[in-house]
Design a protein around this nucleic acid. Structure first.
Lengths: 364, 364
DNA sequence: CTGAAAGCGCTTACAG
DNA sequence: CTGAAAGCGCTTACAG
């Protein structure tokens, strides 16, 4: 039985298109009241169906569901939110300068909420600004967010997380080390992956190996450095200070750092850069100095962004499952709502793995 | 006079931290009722101040503003939205496969709404899916969006735009050609820029020039092709079919297309690729065939994404002011609200310009 | 298992 | 210039 809603909210049979000359009046969306009236129950009962309360007779629920489907009824998230004193929005809070990083994580988060009725609201921020904390919290409170996904490096800010906890805002942090409980963390094993990269270079016979670090304040930088040192040590190789250069995760900083390392005597025969952008800078520096890759210099990066396969020779790097991590972050956030008990798998780190291409070769 | 709100909504003097041992009770956000009570006016008058009605006595307005500032009052967008029957959310609808493109446009849009009280909700879509239109419209209606920014190529879909118009949803399209009125369009002059690229190659003495097109269905592809042909024609150069290869805006498609073009006899001495990703593919194809860049082959791209300066030699390409366009799109959308009359500048296309680097040289 | 009343924090429509 | 009432579309708290 086709029913439709007019502006007045009255019931009416649907007329076949040929029976009416004018276009249909602007359709009004069905509300909980329409459903209640048609189902001949109170709106509270409809509300119970929406919220999956167990205290509704089975056939009542069925009938209500049918009417909802027929009218294409979807509860208004705004009205529901107002009554619930929260919204159905999830904030994606980030301050990472790397476009590819943000896009990949974002794509994953979007996949993770698809079909859930939640939406993703973007919130770039600047963790170094004076009003950083109040600014982010104002956003969270103004929108009464259900929760937030925090990308690194802002995910590493414990003060922010403390304030979110205080206000009972759900959150999941994406990070490179275990900095929170499993319910609040999506972690990649950067340390292990970087150690793997170190082993790769050691096995190729390199002993003079340079390292370009991430900027201070990035936990990923710390993890990658420590993992690299550990990996080298396992093969009896040292990382002297002279072979370490500070980078900033940018192309330009990679060039600078590489020029510094390649000026050392003896010159390193391999360089690990803590991300691909800096590794691209190493190529540029090597070209300037006439150093052939990989004959005179092996290079390893981290991220496996598209640029790594556009470089020549293609870059050996560490693939980081960012999309998967973003998806898992969103799913973990939503799991908090349904009260799903934490699974053992929740604590499992996502593993990053070395992808060997053509920028590494045996040491001469 | 410091006032603060307790859960009960009563007034209370702020105690100095030392005067109380416990942490403050969870702060309740001030509401329109609190402001009205403290200002001794009706909430309707407060509402008038919020909405900048001219019908409020000046000193009443002042007093209310002071109280709002003191309490840090911000109207609840959810409640306001419910009453207004719309939200303060703007959808960013996109289906572009290029990460860099999305990030740049997104960054611009975020800059454009900053401080406006509006938020950006992401909505990737698939314009080729069967349920594409209903899916996007369901999103728009469910969230009662204030408006949407449409990025290409989905911005070129007239059916979608028609439905948005019907439902009185504000929209701004980002596109490569004049496909809508100035109030709804942010346009770049791809045709002119590509013609500029053609001129550059012609001036270098090239006459056998290959073209790698965008995928069918992208208006930008059409504009770039036509602009390129026009530019060549102005210098008396033809673009025979054999020197045109279909691409898909991806790296891999660039390799394929370039291999096809470089197999022609005589071989073209220059290739224009309709975007940088495909241009990167041309480098790869040239390397495979032992064709030196730019000695044997000049290459021009379009986009000026970061990859263009990571390639060796650095790519001559067309810089496209995507961030600025995103920002302008958001601002244009918000202008519709304040009822600002359209300015003459609204119709002005954003110009893309050639950036000459080292991938182009004189023809031998 | 179901419902009538009150409320979430705002605005519109109508008065004055 | 200002306000009391009703309403936006939902939910909570209380009854039964």
């Amino acid at each position: 039985m086709g029913v439709r809603l007019l502006s007045g909210g009255r019931k009416e049979c649907v007329l076949s298109p040929s029976a009416r000359s004018k276009p249909a009046p602007p359709k009004r969306r069905a509300t909980i009241n329409d459903i209640a009236r048609l189902a001949e129950v109170s709106k509270k009962t409809v509300s119970r169906v929406i919220n999956q309360s167990p205290f509704v007779k089975e056939d009542t629920r069925q009938r209500i569901h049918e009417i909802m489907n027929e009218l294409g009824y979807v509860p208004d998230p705004q009205a529901r939110g107002l009554a619930f004193r929260r919204s159905f929005l999830i904030g994606l809070v980030y301050d990472n300068p790397n476009a590819q990083f943000v896009v990949s994580a974002q794509q994953g988060v979007l996949e993770g909420v698809r079909g859930s009725g939640y939406e993703i609201v973007l919130h770039p921020c600047d963790r170094l600004a004076k009003n950083f904390l109040p600014e982010v919290m104002a956003f969270v409170e103004r929108q009464k967010l259900y929760g937030v996904v925090l990308l690194p490096p802002v995910s590493e800010n414990n003060k922010l997380v403390e304030m979110l906890r205080e206000r009972n805002v759900h959150y999941v942090r994406v990070a490179s080390a275990v900095i929170d409980g499993p319910a609040h963390l999506i972690v990649s094993n950067d340390r292990l992956a970087t150690s793997e990269a170190a082993t790769h270079l050691a096995m190729l016979g390199h002993t003079r190996i340079g390292f370009i670090s991430g900027p201070p304040g990035f936990r990923s930088g710390k993890e990658r450095r420590e993992g690299f040192v550990e990996g080298l040590k396992a093969h009896g190789i040292d990382l002297p200070e002279a072979y370490v250069a500070q980078g900033a995760y940018t192309y330009e900083s990679g060039i600078e750092a590489a020029l510094q390392l390649l000026a050392q005597k003896p010159r390193p025969t391999a360089i690990f850069a803590a991300n691909d952008e800096m590794a691209a800078g190493v190529y540029e520096a090597a070209r300037k100095l006439g150093v052939a890759i990989p004959r005179d210099l092996s290079i390893v990066g981290f991220d496996d962004t598209p640029v790594s396969s556009r470089l020549w020779p293609p870059l050996t790097t560490v693939r980081w499952p960012l999309v998967e991590m973003g998806r898992a972050a969103a799913q973990k956030l939503l799991r908090a709502e349904s009260g799903t008990p934490p699974a053992a798998a929740d604590a499992r780190p996502f593993s990053a793995h070395l992808v060997v291409r053509e920028s590494t070769a045996a040491a001469k």
